[in-house]
Amino acid sequence: MKSAVVVFPGSNREGDVARAIELTSGRKSEMVWHADTSLPKGTDLVVLPGGFSYGDYLRCGAIAARAPIMDAVREHANKGGLVLGICNGFQILCESGLLPGVLARNAKLKFMCREVYLRIERSDTPWSRRYNAGAVIKVPVAHGEGNYLADAETIARLEGEGRVLFRYVSPEGKLDPAWNYNGATNAIAGIMSEKLNVLGLMPHPENHVDPAVGPTDGRGFFESIKAALEAA
């Protein structure tokens, strides 16, 4: 399993995700600078980490989506390689056209850092094979713009094709507006590309992997990726 974590100016969770990958797979990630034009040879997984790329003073992720490295990321995705965008990374994936829709400001217009409950909608993906479909995990979010929006047709397509992987739910796993704290359409927390190889999600499973710090519900996510890559 060879991971490349792309560092944009203003990325700030690149270390967290690299640490989670190392903790769960034993493998170090390579940090790739945004101005580079190619990925390290043999890259299996590309990660676009959380943060505030270019300060996010424009629409979140809009500038990063046009960074030199993104052509290589697109090519990797087109060849079926795994691409993971977390938080700001999800925003960048949407802005770069690798995933549909946009992430608007949270319904309450405030940045929110808290634990949320996610329902895993299916387990037959590279990202979730270590979870059971329907399982509920607790992981944190930390963002101001995570309110997923897309036109009705896109939403219908995402739902119809089973491309919604994570949804905000109550601790019991029920859809409930009170637990969809950012107001996302259909409580969507994470979606995949048609071939399921590109995933964008707002929550931070990488911050819940280490028993020395807190809960570890996010471990299964990284263990799934590792298992998927080893099986491939």
Binding site: C113, E206, A212, V213
Partner: peptide
């Protein structure tokens, strides 16, 4: 404190709301 990212860097062992915050040094 929910408007503050209090978890980034993955070292926050005791979060806001306790007597003192506890931050792990390196890997503990």
């Amino acid at each position: 404190w929910e408007q503050y990212d209090h978890l980034i860097l993955n070292n926050t062992v005791q979060r806001p709301g306790g007597d003192a915050a506890v931050i792990r040094i390196e890997n503990g």
